[in-house]
Simulated scan of single mutants.
Amino acid sequence: MTTDAPVPVFDGHNDVLLRLWRSGTKAAEHDFLRENETGHLDLPRARAGGFAGGLFAVYVPSSATATGADGKPEPLAPSLAEAQAATLELVSLLARMERVSDGGLTICRTAGDIRGAMAAGSVAAVLHVEGAEMIDPDLKMLDVLYQAGLRSIGPVWSRTNIFGYGVPFRFPSSPDIGPGLTEEGKALVRACNDLRIMVDLSHLNEQGFWDVAKVSDAPLVASHSNVHALTPHSRNLTDRQLDAIRERDGLVGLNFGTMFMREDGRKDPDTPLDALVRHIDYLVDRIGLDRVGLGSDFDGTTVPNDLRDASRLPALVAAMRKKGYDEDAVTKICSGNWIRVLEKTWQS
């Protein structure tokens, strides 16, 4: 581990809002300001590891399940009322985190905001929705959330809602599971294009991916997904999907979840970082260096022990350098590529 300042990382996905919300702490926003013994991300560990910003997810957990086609339980989407109530609390939590952080965290709406926050040493937080259950069919809530700072949205999580069909967690499995976007989902994508909100392809099944590709005029982005050819998990991207992302000058953010990087698909924290670097190598070869980023899924998945929290990000940087990535390549993968694709998507 070097004593130099860590390489700044702009990360494609974290679930810290959900972790803090679930903690039940009366003033959970203050928990982000102090180092925790649980979870992966807080302000002290972000600063220690160079976590300079990322997409902060609003995700509403499922409260019920149903039996899927394979006989296994699958999560059901929350009701509109349930999702809107939870979303209000989660978006408010992020706003309060910004307010009490004394400049330590900044909600960003433009690429310029991200650059400014990173230059000032403030964590650049972009509001992201993972599963659009809180958005009504008339998309009125989309306008409200946009004004609150929403700049990225995944129409579905790994469950069905009015907008489309999420890909269930299966290994080994193709992502080609079921139908894709509904007509409401296609309308949501068009509205996001109009507002210049990024549409996230992670958690969509393969048909949903191609529906977005057909409807959207923006770069194709998967915020936290890996390579299906290396790890045949349903959440990972096939070569054909990767080729489409390359052709549309998009981006893939590498998920740190061990089940998405291991050949055996296991949740095993005793997984070497070489397994993740192998996915980086494949993506760089397939879609180009400028289209590869990081999408940790901190606070939302089982990560390798060597990346056990945000303070350990320099270990991944060291693993990339050891594999031969120079400083320009490391900088692009760690932050530059994300800012480029967001700027292109937002046109700001």
Rank of each mutant, 00 (worst) to 15 (best):
G49D: 00
N14L: 06
K26A: 15
Y59R: 01
D11C: 07
T2H: 11
E37H: 14
D42H: 12
F32C: 01
T3M: 04
S62I: 02
T2G: 14
E35H: 11
T65G: 09
F56I: 06
P6A: 12
H13T: 09
G12H: 03
Y59L: 09
L41D: 03
R45Q: 00
N36V: 04
A5Y: 01
A48Q: 09
P61H: 11
F10G: 01
V58T: 11
A64V: 13
L17H: 12
L33P: 05
G39S: 10
L18T: 10
T38I: 04
T38N: 10
T25N: 12
E29I: 07
P44Y: 10
R19T: 10
G54S: 11
G24I: 05
L33I: 09
S62H: 05
L41K: 04
F10D: 01
P44G: 14
G24P: 02
R22I: 02
R22Q: 15
D4M: 04
H30P: 10
E29N: 12
A66Y: 08
T2N: 14
T2V: 13
H30R: 15
N36S: 15
P8S: 11
A5T: 14
A48P: 04
S23M: 13
D4E: 15
R47I: 02
T3H: 11
S63E: 12
G68F: 08
A28I: 08
G50L: 05
F10I: 03
Y59S: 00
R19W: 04
G24S: 06
G54P: 09
H30Y: 15
V7M: 08
L55M: 14
T67V: 11
A57D: 01
V7K: 03
W21N: 10
G54M: 06
A28N: 08
E29R: 12
S23Q: 01
L20N: 03
V9R: 02
V60Y: 00
V16M: 13
P61Y: 09
P61A: 01
L18V: 03
A27I: 02
L55R: 07
V16S: 08
T65Q: 07
N36G: 12
T67S: 05
D15T: 04
M1H: 14
T65S: 08
P61I: 00
L17R: 06
L17Q: 09
H40T: 03
P61S: 06
H40L: 10
P44N: 05
D4Q: 15
